[in-house]
Design a protein around this nucleic acid. Structure first.
Lengths: 255, 255
DNA sequence: GGGAAGCGTCCCGCTCAGCGATACGCTCTT
DNA sequence: AAGAGCGTATCGCTGAGCGGGACGCTTCCC
């Protein structure tokens, strides 16, 4: 999946085990962890015992699962927290105006990490999850972040392989480049069933004083009833509001 | 601030260091970590180095902070996730009807852990944070969870010391017991400046088929403009909706 | 019903990763 | 100048962690 860690330090193994869990897993049996991590059975067994003792894992019938303590710990991560606290009111407004699924995402490497996802009863069946990842090139948020990114990063992504997620995923570097240029000009990015069939999306970047993208906001809906163009202004306004608040409070000094 | 772990296993130390971070900390210097954990300076130094290598900590100017990777990991914790996914639409509705801060919390020991907090621009200055903790006896959510809890747990809390947070915190076991009984009868719990001055709150429990409390929902506002009684029905309805959805989907098998 | 496969648990000797006392260099403050 | 506080580096000792292996259990299939 992503970058592996040290592999043979105690902590490295523990983290490898924790990362073996996916969001969709309810509980994983020991053998499955052995398979996913490639570690020795005895090692995983012992390690997992310690992880339970330190309350990072819960032992449940059918195996192990990530504990609530880990959830607590994760919510203390400062960058995500402060961004989230500033952005939440604007995301709420956006949801109220559209009543469609609202996302807040940041870029990490060539992927988008969703920091927040809020939606109502009729929300579209988007594959995104809070804390989940998606490639940058096939989502509205990702394209917004990429459009305002360093030229070097943009080049990297355009050069690297562009994974095809649906028939409409943009995998031609030339086309993607033209889209990115258009995005900067318009101030918003669109996605038309490029990451999941039936889903469309509009996003706008949260820019700092130097026009660098800190995050991006999006509204997502099913292609059957959702017209991204008609929400472009709302999304732009939300992103601008977040940016202004950040500038005022001077949160997020780095990254 | 709760149960410590093993202390002298590698993982125990690492977790102790991670737990030394509070939600309000931006970045902690090495020396502060040494102070909070009580570990040897050299040990913390090395350990912290490895935590950075495993991407659980970020090194930033001024020290270290919990990384985005930890946030990701935490969001995969299954219990919190599934509860949150089911509850979110109802919390959104509740926010839209009240435009005050909405909380979702679960009980862990004698404390409440906030799983979600959503609010708008005018939100009350509540001390709660997503992933944060508060004592059960001084919050509306806590009292709701306690009112429907096992008699044994109720007894434990009533017997234990009841920390005074504000002049209005209920610290008399007799009074608290009478409140809890009234809560069960009414179906909602109230808090009048018992955890923080200026803040009032109304909460209702999410009950499973056996009437055991899985979580609780609350609406919080400043005492100056917010009248908890007038939102009791909305909170009750939201909690009931979540309970019904859980029953239908049969999430949260245990805990 | 017997055998094989998969799983969780336990054991045990080897070795190296982690330990913490100590020391050093740097930046402020006094 | 001296001292305090901090981050970093060194360095032997030792026991925690390692992984090959064995054992008992259940499940599934011939």
């Amino acid at each position: 999946m992503a970058e592996d860690v040290d592999l043979d330090t105690v902590l490295g193994k523990a983290v490898t085990i924790l990362r073996a869990f996916r969001a969709e897993d309810k509980a994983l049996p020991l053998a499955e962890l052995v398979r996913r991590t490639g570690l020795h059975k005895a090692t995983v067994h012992r390690q997992v015992g310690e992880l339970v003792a330190t309350r990072l894992l819960d032992r449940v019938e059918g195996g192990y699962r990530l504990s609530g303590g880990l959830f607590e710990l994760g919510m203390r991560a400062s960058v995500e927290r402060s961004l989230l606290e500033v952005a939440m009111p604007f995301l709420q407004d956006l949801y109220e105006r559209t009543h469609e699924t609202v996302h807040l995402g940041i870029r990490e490497g060539h992927e988008v990490v969703y920091v927040a996802k809020i939606g109502g009863h009729r929300q579209a069946a988007a594959p995104s999850r809070t804390g989940g990842r998606m490639p940058v090139h096939c989502t509205a948020i990702g394209k917004a972040l990429l459009a305002w990114a360093d030229p070097e990063l943009r080049r990297e992504v355009l050069a690297g392989p562009l994974e095809r997620r649906t028939p409409r995923t943009v995998v031609a570097p030339g086309l993607l480049r033209r889209q990115l240029d258009a995005i900067v000009e318009r101030g918003v990015s669109y996605e038309h069933e490029e990451s999941a069939v039936g889903i469309v999306c509009v996003a706008a970047p949260v820019l700092d004083a130097d026009e660098r993208p800190l995050a991006a906001v999006s509204v997502t809906g099913p292609v059957t009833r959702f017209h991204p163009e008609s929400h472009a202004n709302a999304v732009r306004a939300a992103a601008a509001g977040i940016a202004a608040t950040i500038a005022r409070r001077r949160v997020m000094t780095d990254r």
